[in-house]
Design a protein around this nucleic acid. Structure first.
Lengths: 147, 147
DNA sequence: GTGCCTGCAAATAATTTGCAGCAGT
DNA sequence: ACTGCTGCAAATTATTTGCAGGCAC
């Protein structure tokens, strides 16, 4: 598979946009940090490498990364947009612990299939979907129970 | 089943809060208008009946309605919080047309079951979930195809 | 050299909060 | 009477945008 940096470069030149040191740095750190990062989180980390970078640049670059297919926006319902890596066309959903905020990525082929069918039954052709499962993780249940 | 107004009154007195004309009016209109209403939508409608009502009151009342179990917050990912009616403990998910914004409420027992199981497999006990299917509705496909 | 890019600060958008007077219970 | 409630405006939060100078192509 093509390297992320190449994917991004290709995307940029296709759109007559430019590869800059800031964009390279943000992509780099975005790839290094696994998980679900808010723009602000990324900004904090990126700033350690380039004191002079601006928040807006991080916001703008994350948007570009989404458009290039390298990142995907996810919204956990707390008003903060997070971004996660997305190689090729991998897809997954989320289980979020309501106690500690831990978020796992999961997929269930059977569910995906049923979603497709459900949409069809209502006359829709699916283009995408989001599923968030909220609950208590094993750790938090133990802590709560143990008390 | 108990009347919504009674449910709300009970909730309020249980919390040492008060039933006011504004709250009664907002509940009334919320029940009348089926669908997924943003606070601002409701505010616009409510204003036709009471010119002097403030936005903040609508926001605050919708929050109370959620807490009382009569309403449920839904977020379609466009940064606007919407509210839908929720009698008893009815639950459903959403299919949203990316073209015209139309939103349908749906349930699929089989999916619900698999979600439960999926969470379990990852050590979670589910407390709730949200599922949003995005796609194109039949109408919009026709319009697009016809062009 | 041209047009995109950057950091900054100001602008938005949705929602929340502080406050002084008003009103349910 | 005692608190909670209301409308208003100001505050917050997350994100976007305008701009003047700088840099990639």
């Amino acid at each position: 598979m093509k390297e992320p940096l190449e994917v991004f470069s290709d995307y940029l030149s296709r759109k007559n946009l430019k590869m800059t040191p800031q964009r390279r740095l943000i992509l780099d750190i975005f790839l290094r940090e696994k998980g679900h990062l808010a723009s602000e989180d990324l900004y904090t980390i990126v700033k350690r490498f380039d004191k002079s970078i601006g928040q807006a640049t991080v916001y703008r670059t994350l948007k570009l990364l989404s458009e290039s297919g390298l990142a995907k926006e996810v919204k956990f319902g707390d008003g903060v947009t997070r971004y996660e890596q997305k190689y090729g066309n991998s897809h997954h959903d989320h289980i979020i612990c309501e106690e500690c905020g831990k978020a796992l990525s999961v997929v269930d082929e059977k569910i995906e299939e049923l979603q497709e069918r459900l949409a069809e039954e209502h006359g829709f052709v699916l283009t995408g979907h989001e599923m968030y499962l909220y609950g208590l993780c094993a750790d938090c249940r133990r802590k709560k129970g143990g008390h």
